[in-house]
Nucleic acid binder design. Structure first.
Length: 591
RNA sequence: GGUUCCGUAGCUCAGUUGGAUAGAGCAACAGAUUUCUAAUCUGUGGGUCAUAGGUUCGAAUCCUAUCGGGAUCACCA
């Protein structure tokens, strides 16, 4: 039953009968300072009817009282008609929620969506920026799945190219046969070490050349180590045995490292694409575009598209020598994804530095008449900056993902042990909890902010465990579970059907919020916005904690009230668990 | 310079299909625990919603301009 829709239609009828007007009715939640749940704004009618807001409000309010059993009373403040639903309405909603274990699950949409995220380069380990990407992608996938879509999580690994050759070359030159085992480094960190080593050697060579009087631009192009890297790339492309063997060896190390990180942070994929397999795709699409006249060729044989009508520029899609550029392979990969899964939609979780690239990509797909073009969406997110500015892998000024997670776990352990509430935990159980809390704090920190906003991370201030945080919500869940355990130990059975009696305001607030879950899910799905879910969970947890301070469950003497509260808090716990699950955050039974 | 995103409390952020006195957390201060977990709750102080115009009964929200910051504008990916 949808209370809001019912009230809207009754107000619509009231205005028809009282004034003969056809109005689309909008309701908003009543502000906390006033009594009521929904508010109808009268102002728009004032002008048309030439009556005072009070007169109109009273007329509509009285109409609702006598024509709708849902409304108990109303009040008018300025031009706002605040409506107070009858307690029976809340019981109706509450009973319905209790009797539907799937509450909040949206109906199947019979559409499928691909969410591509993570998409790392295999020349360095993951950093904080990648974490934002991973958590966003994983959460959006969860949200869409809960919203009734079939979801395929995919990852496109950038495992080839000049930057990969840089790590390989530096390893070849300076590595002395080092391995993850011999160095004790995770494979991705080992590769990253040589990526940094390349850059250092390269800079030294450039400096030397500049001192010899060669202009910097030219020095950068002619530095021997850079030349060597380029030669290595050519060898890779021609399938040189030695280069390929090195590439396979180092990539295997990196993949092992990535998989460990993915496992720790709890993300996964249904399909992995490798650029080494897809980088040649797209040339046939260039042919197609040329013959259909969407693309054109210049004298030097290079192929272009003119997107000035779309407010963009002219864009190269194939080099004069017939080799691919970035967009060429993305054209091919995009076609491949839709061919593989026949999705209705495809989402790319990629940082905002590629906004322009995706505008171009989607515009080209539209010009080429791809039926899926309108279903393409770039979920763009802002960079995670440090107080010192941008993170740069080459210069080593990054917050490493593995290190950060390890630090968070250590902080979680310290914070938890200080409180002494889990002294009876087995060690394994305790470690599991520390990890859960650490990742809860980290994921919530990165997901509560709107994706497109850039955000600041200050390593000097650790991520909070109090206030508007993941652990606050996890704690709330544990608190509820503690009461439920107590009830269970006393043999209480949770009822799922309640007869009308008096409700406290904070109980109504909780019923209202739990019932809002499906609206929140829908909004989050439509906007690809985990932050909406995060803020909702916080609101629900906060409201529960007020309830907790104000009312007692197990010490309530009125049996009917006690039983209702038990069922209510179970519903709250389930909803928190579900909501946090959408963010990829687990909630503990105890903490 | 062109395009684009952002600018809300000391700090980090909510709030934008236009509605009431702009909300949280952190930090500061004052309280609450013989009572279901104080990682909690209650309260106090803190605002030119970047600035200036415009539209509207009504603007943080929409429009225009300006200022400040980010991103991008490669035959790199």
């Amino acid at each position: 039953m949808d209370l809001e829709l019912n009230i809207k239609s009754t107000i619509k009828k009231a205005i028809q009968e009282l004034y003969g007007l056809e109005e689309e009715i909008q309701l908003q939640p009543t502000r906390k300072d006033f009594e009521g749940t929904y508010t109808f704004v009268i102002f728009p009618l004032v002008k048309q009817l030439k009556k005072s807001p009070a007169d109109i409000g009273t007329a509509i309010g009285d109409y609702l009282i006598s024509n709708s059993p849902d409304i108990k009373k109303y009040n008018i403040v300025q031009g706002f008609l605040n409506l107070v639903p009858d307690d029976s309405v809340w019981f109706g909603i509450f009973n319905a929620l209790l009797q539907n274990p799937d509450h909040g699950k949206l109906t199947a949409k019979n559409e499928s969506v691909m969410v591509e995220y993570s998409s790392p380069n295999t020349n360095k380990p993951l950093h904080l920026g990648h974490l934002r990407n991973n958590f966003l992608g994983y959460s959006v996938a969860n949200i869409l799945e809960a919203s009734g879509y079939e979801v395929i999580k995919s990852c496109l690994i950038n495992d080839r190219g000049i930057h990969i050759c840089k790590s390989m070359l530096a390893y070849q030159k300076f590595g002395n046969g080092e391995t993850p085992e011999s160095s004790g480094l995770k494979g991705d960190h080992l590769a990253g070490k040589y990526y940094v080593a390349f850059d250092r050697a390269y800079k030294t060579e450039v400096d030397v050349l500049v001192q010899q009087g060669i202009p910097e631009d030219e020095a950068k192009k002619t530095a021997p180590i850079m030349k060597e890297a380029q030669e290595m790339l050519l060898k890779w492309e021609s399938g040189d045995d030695e280069v390929i063997a090195l590439w396979k060896k180092m990539n295997a190390w990196v993949f092992a490292g990535f998989n460990e990180t993915y496992k720790t942070i709890g993300v996964s994929f249904d399909k992995t694409y490798y650029e080494s397999n897809t980088y040649l795709l797209g040339k046939d699409i260039v042919e197609e575009g040329l013959s259909s006249g969407v693309f054109y060729q210049k004298d030097d044989k290079s192929v272009w598209i003119d997107l000035t009508h779309e407010g963009l520029d002219q864009k190269l899609v194939l080099r004069g020598d017939g080799t691919s550029v970035y967009i060429t392979q993305d054209l091919g990969t995009t076609d491949l994804k839709f061919k593989d899964f026949s999705n209705n939609r495809s989402i790319w979780v990629v940082g905002n530095e590629q906004d322009y690239h995706f505008q171009v990509l989607f515009a080209i797909m539209k010009r080429l008449g791809r039926s899926y073009a309108d279903g393409c969406y770039h979920l763009s997110y802002g960079m995670v900056d440090l107080p010192s500015g941008k993170m740069k892998s080459r210069e080593g000024t990054v917050v490493d993902a593995d290190e950060l997670v390890a630090e968070m776990i250590a902080t979680a352990e310290q914070t938890t042990r200080e409180r002494g509430k889990i002294d009876d935990f087995e060690e394994e159980e305790a470690q599991k909890l520390f990890k859960m809390l650490a990742l809860g704090a980290l994921k919530y920190f990165l997901l509560k902010v709107e994706p497109k906003k850039r955000m600041l991370f200050n390593p000097a201030e650790s991520i909070d465990f109090q206030g508007n945080t993941g652990p606050f919500i996890q704690y709330t869940h544990a608190r509820i579970k503690s009461i439920l355990r107590k009830a269970e130990s006393q043999g209480a059975q949770l009822k799922s059907e309640f007869a009308l009696h008096e409700l406290a305001q904070v109980e109504i607030d909780l019923i209202y919020l739990v019932n809002e879950y499906h609206n929140i899910l829908e909004k989050a799905g439509n906007d690809y916005a985990p932050s909406v879910v995060a803020n909702y969970c916080y609101d629900l947890a906060k409201t529960f904690n007020s309830f907790y301070a104000e009312l007692s469950v197990m010490n309530e003497e009125d049996t009917a009230k006690k039983e209702l509260r038990l069922s209510l808090i179970r519903l709250v716990a389930d909803t928190l668990k579900k909501g946090m699950g959408l963010l990829g955050i687990e909630v503990p039974e105890r903490m």
